[in-house]
Simulated scan of single mutants.
Amino acid sequence: MATKARAPATAPLKGRGAASYVPGRFETATTHAEDDGWDSLQRRDETDPDPHPDTRVHEERARSVVSRNDSPDIGFSQSVNPYRGCEHGCVYCFARPSHAYLNLSPGLDFETRLFAKTNAAERLRAEFSRKGYRCSPIALGINTDAYQPIERRYRITRSLIEVMAEYRHPFSLITKNALVTRDLDLLAPLAEQRLATVYFSVTSLDNRLSAKMEPRASAPHARLRAMRELAAAGVPVGVMMAPVIPALNDHELEAILDAAYTAGARAAGHVLLRLPHELKDVWREWLQLHHPDRAAHVMSLVRQMRGGRDYDSAFGSRMRGEGPFADLIAQRFERTRRRLGFTRLPALDTTLFRTPAASGDQGQLF
């Protein structure tokens, strides 16, 4: 299946992270725009990306919603993602290549062609009720943000949290959206029972840089405000600086941790920029459009931390990198974490898990 024709990106698209339809790695044929000498590439035609691409949501019925992993780099074994694709449009998102499995572009399609799992709560309830199910904390919204803008309309994440509450199942979530405060009525009582924690991803305190890298996520100050609101309500809050990008946002590391701690975060982590599969093409294009003066330097440092490549997927190094620059970032992070007093969030409690009796099921008297 061929992808959309890809015209060379000459300018960023307002409100979008990607600037073109980067082809997926499974496409058998791709088409590219070529200049025929008659200024064809200067005229807008069907090969150009729409300067204002709309967001389209496809509602789907999932067969299952719980994904499992045994990666030593990740601190959870189960996750649930209510949506595929993410309207936040974070240009660095490691999940972008997953859209290639749908024969869609990891570029613009990832943030404009979204999939909502409208039966997610139903499937989660069925999984929890399955004979032999073993309770283990669930990470909610790991690949794509569970509180991306369309959650305001679909409320799938809220329905999943309601199921967690019904079964007293522990979970954690990570988000870039202040919309999470909408569900404080659910999160606060669950946190009191050690059943819920929330992490915020903060990549920059610079509104201009944030608007370019993650155009439809909440502004940095809105995330900090949401942290304060959750922490004040008793919800354990953490911060993730993910990703750390050399020569672009790494200089903000200490300031971000300081601001997050002041806002109530009590745990912190960081992850280096990861560029698997097609993401390296989306990222390079973005760099050339927004920071052409430092694009070569950024990529040089990235390769220094990835064994001379754009990306190294090896367990143990894919999150933290290697080499002097990666070590320096790790040392700065650890020194700041200790200075501010970051520790760990309370462990989630798996002993409260229960399978509620079916409605009307009161057993047999005789």
Rank of each mutant, 00 (worst) to 15 (best):
P292F: 01
K4M: 11
D349Y: 09
R25H: 09
S40A: 15
H290S: 08
E252F: 05
I161K: 07
H32C: 00
P236H: 06
P72A: 12
F115I: 12
P246L: 10
Q364P: 00
K212P: 02
V237K: 05
R168K: 11
R125F: 09
G17N: 02
V57R: 08
V302W: 10
L230A: 01
S218L: 08
E322A: 15
F333Y: 15
M241D: 05
P72T: 11
A196D: 07
L102H: 12
S218V: 01
D109E: 05
P356D: 05
T336G: 02
T355K: 13
H32Y: 12
Q78S: 13
T350A: 11
T10V: 15
Q304D: 15
K131S: 14
D36Y: 01
E254I: 03
R168D: 07
S98L: 11
P51V: 00
D50V: 10
T55C: 11
K14V: 12
L340A: 15
S210Y: 07
R84Q: 09
S67R: 14
R16A: 08
A121M: 03
M299V: 15
M164H: 14
R168W: 04
A178W: 01
H169E: 11
L224I: 01
L287Y: 09
L287V: 08
A139F: 15
P356H: 10
T30H: 07
Q362E: 12
G341C: 13
L348W: 04
Q304W: 02
F333W: 10
R25A: 02
G341L: 08
R43T: 13
D145E: 04
L348D: 00
T355E: 08
A5L: 12
A268V: 10
L272Y: 03
H169R: 03
G141D: 04
